[in-house]
Nucleic acid binder design. Structure first.
Lengths: 343, 343
DNA sequence: ATGAAAGCGCTAACAT
DNA sequence: ATGTTAGCGCTTTCAT
């Protein structure tokens, strides 16, 4: 059974091709025509071919979405909200992640372009890669960059880690901690860089030497577990940990458990990021959180804005603020024991 | 700057339109032609328009993927593996989830169809909805159904919860538990139905009355917390809990904590599903797990199989087995205390 | 207000 | 082996 086309509808309604198209696009037609055509459409169960429409209108109603790893709950939440927001506007998401043995970022961008997506949402790896910059510059349509600071070149949505981590660190310092360890990946791009900056700033604002704090650049869980273990076994172990959510946090928890340390008695802990389980953990983990829905909404707003305003509008940068959710994983450091071992 | 088309390439290379197309599609051409065309392609930075190709070939290289909620880690993991597997085959994923205020399942299927996706992967809500069945029946291309048992109508991939939950229940029974509560949503479709069946079977195989076990149909986290709280406060509270991962599990953990109960001393707990955090929880939670990567791979295999074999091949059903990961959240019931209150 | 016809960028069948 | 041409299903002039 062949697909039903606009031609079939025209024949069925006894009108011309163009007239059916007019009805489809809500152009002014006579009532009689409208009814005949609608009747034919209903009878045949016709739905216009999106491909053919796109071909003519140069608009696919598809948005390319490139995130490093959709199985990362952070990105999953974003994509979910993006999907819901975009389908409200009649768009559909095309999703792709770069893979080790598969397509690279650049290849995915090229493929999106070939498929004529109307816009691009990308959480790229690098902040400086010239090839990436060039590919994005060449891209024909609105772009929103997530989680990397591309200065004034593109619309960007960023989580404001700096003030958040600063507040978290300040909180730990106010409890009496001095040797705090910050575990974060990506210290050479926005997320890590801002976290480190906030971390240092908290020390500085109290007149403390920021070198008291340890920064542990992290990538994998296994590394995290091993590194935390090593850190906790050192001569002057930290009394508090600030760990980015996900595998770094779970890795840290493994290390803490294997050393038999108690939270918060022996070690205070704050999570950067607040997935569901962090709040029900034993003890409930104090966390830095931000509004993912707002992040996604801002992304969509930027995408559609530059869609309409033409290319004239200058790139914007939206910062998503964070707040610290106090729970039960932080306490003053075990001063006595520390004092003994310190003298 | 107008987009560069095959026409531009032909002119640049001084050959005909069709010859360029031949080169593009790897059809036999002379070396001289091949080189001229490739040079022109490289010089102009030409990439074929996927829309126009699809229009002619009736193949988009896109796969529609409809899951209830991508922010659910279970689905996120599946979609991630699907993406990586499909891009290996040159496909691209179109993703959409039904939303309360947005598109329904049926509308998404229709939209996928309008967009001429080459295949459909769907984790539907209902197992029996006639409208859904009809929409899927009308769909023009291979379909793989996830997590619902559509009998012999479509290719299907299912997690074999029955034997898994049976093993988990058997384990709890062997520890001496008799009053076990199973918390699962969807008891009228495959996942819940199979879990309940396995649960009952474990009692039956020991000659025990399956009515000793309590089945709590769950949907929302809030219900879970409230229901578990009520259950734990009842005259004969369960000594063990079997909870589906995600919000039901976190809800249960909240209730357990608010009652000041200790795991496994006061209550044993098994998670159905094994996200990262379950293993680092305090105590580490015994869990039923399955291989999501295998699930996704089977899905792709089914999709491509029926892609090639024509519609003749009869629908297949792939079962993904589970295994029980023993950790520290289960112990014999506190017999003494119970005995006192029982007599 | 409606019909006829051109063409979006490609592929494939038909010539040569 | 390569050039020419007819569509794929639609939108959009241009006529009427």
């Amino acid at each position: 059974m062949a697909r039903v086309t606009i031609k079939d509808v025209a024949r069925e309604a006894g009108v011309s091709l163009g007239s059916v198209s007019r009805v489809l696009n809500g152009l002014p037609v006579s009532d009689r025509l409208l009814q005949k055509v609608n009747a034919a459409i209903a009878k045949l169960g016709y739905a216009p071919d999106a491909l053919a429409q796109s071909m003519r209108t140069h608009s696919t109603g598809a948005i390319g979405c490139l995130v490093p790893d959709i199985s990362n709950p952070l990105y999953a939440a974003i994509v979910n909200t993006l999907d819901r927001g975009l389908q409200h506007q009649g768009y559909m998401l095309m999703l792709a992640s770069p893979a080790a043995g598969g397509r690279s970022e650049l290849q995915i961008i090229a493929e999106f372009q070939r498929r004529r997506v109307d816009g691009l949402i990308i959480a790229p790896d690098s902040e400086t890669d010239p090839a990436l910059m060039e590919a994005l510059g060449r891209f024909n349509g609105p772009i929103v960059v997530l989680g990397r600071d591309f200065q004034q070149r593109f619309d960007t949505v960023l989580v404001e880690y700096r003030t958040g981590v600063q507040a978290a660190t300040r909180y730990l310092l106010s409890l009496g901690h001095r040797r705090i360890a910050l575990m974060t990946p990506l210290i050479d791009v926005w997320p890590g860089r801002e976290r480190v900056a906030g971390f240092r700033a908290a020390y500085a604002e109290l007149g403390l030497d920021p070198a008291l704090g340890v920064v542990l650049p992290q990538t994998l869980e296994l590394d995290a577990a091993a590194d935390v273990d090593r850190l906790l076994g050192s001569a002057e172990p930290p009394t508090a940990l600030l760990a980015i959510g996900g595998r770094v946090l779970t890795g840290a928890l493994r290390a803490i458990r294997s050393r038999g340390l108690r939270i918060p008695t022996d070690l205070s802990l704050i999570s950067i990021g607040d997935p569901e389980w962090v709040g029900v953990f034993n003890p409930a983990i104090t966390a830095l959180r931000w509004d993912v829905a707002r992040l996604a909404q801002s992304t969509i707003a930027l995408l559609l804005k530059s869609q309409q305003a033409g290319q004239a509008a200058s790139p914007q940068r939206v910062l998503i603020s964070t707040d610290l959710v106090l729970r039960d994983s932080c306490a003053p450091p075990a001063a006595v024991g520390r004092a003994v071992s310190a003298y």
